[in-house]
Amino acid sequence: MAGVLAAGHASLALGVPSEPGSLHALSAIGGVTIDAAEDRVVVFGRNRPEVDVCVGEHDVRVSRRQGVLSRRDGRWCVRNTGRVAVRLPRSRLLGPEEEPVALPGGYTPLFVRGANGREHLLELYVGGGPAGAAPRPSRLSATERLVLVACGCRYLLHEAGPRPMPKREAAVLLAELRPAEAWPVARVEFVLTTVRARLAAEGPLAENADDHGLLRELVTSATLVPPDLALLTA
């Protein structure tokens, strides 16, 4: 059976109550949920009428039918059928017509490389993954979230060995996004310090954690999730 995930659905990084082997696929404009039956196929790409999940709808660099998710021999796999690379976590690139890659249980974000360096997010969640700690998001103000996404974008992109964006570069980016506001480096530093102190007081973060430790905790707890990257393209 198949179901529909509406646009604006919560990030799959927060976890999905689901049957073992089921698949959930979600983009910025919605998605689907599919049961674990063999020979199931989910097509994703930019041409909404021709695909099950639309990704990068108005980006002509993304193929009309960019990739396929299929279930064979009890595993969900992803295959790139388009022109551009699909990036998996830890910066692994899946090129056009390469052998399919099996998806692990639980959460996996995919990124389709579009025009002007943009990467379009496709969130996947396979039911029945290893049981781990449940996400424990912390509350952030809108400004705190924006600053932390700017500083932690490499973590949300699931790059290999991510590091915080330098505060000066983050301040420049924030000034471009919100030109009516002042964005000195000190303001970026203040947000990082304030959130670090709050999390340390609540217990999930070591009091002497650096920016790397802070951002890793925010991503691990699903306080920051890959769809938050949309804040940087607003």
Rank of each mutant, 00 (worst) to 15 (best):
M1E: 14
A2W: 14
G3M: 14
V4F: 11
V4Y: 06
A7Q: 15
G8F: 12
G8Q: 11
L12W: 08
L12Q: 11
L12Y: 06
A13Q: 12
L14C: 03
L14I: 04
G15L: 13
G15W: 10
G21P: 02
A25E: 06
L26C: 03
L26H: 09
S27P: 02
G30Y: 03
G31W: 05
V32H: 08
I34V: 14
D39C: 02
V41A: 04
V41S: 02
V43S: 08
R46P: 00
N47C: 10
N47T: 06
R48Q: 09
E50S: 05
D52G: 02
G56P: 00
R61I: 11
V62P: 00
S63N: 04
R64K: 14
R65D: 09
R65F: 11
Q66S: 07
V68K: 14
R71V: 03
R71I: 02
G74F: 11
R75V: 05
C77D: 01
N80L: 06
A85H: 13
A85E: 11
R87H: 14
P89S: 09
R92G: 11
L94T: 02
P96G: 00
E97F: 15
E99S: 12
A102P: 01
A102K: 08
P104D: 12
Y107S: 01
T108R: 07
P109V: 09
R113Q: 11
R113N: 05
G114Y: 10
G114R: 10
H120P: 00
G128N: 08
G128H: 09
G129K: 04
G129V: 09
A131C: 08
G132R: 15
G132A: 15
A133G: 05
T143R: 12
L146H: 01
V147I: 05
L148I: 01
C151M: 07
L157H: 02
L157G: 01
G161I: 00
M165A: 11
M165R: 12
E169I: 02
A171L: 07
R178F: 12
A180D: 10
E181P: 00
V185G: 04
F190P: 00
T194A: 15
T194G: 02
R196H: 13
A200C: 10
P204T: 03
E207T: 10
E207A: 14
A209C: 10
G213H: 13
T223P: 01
T223E: 06
V225K: 05
P227A: 11
A234E: 14
A234W: 14
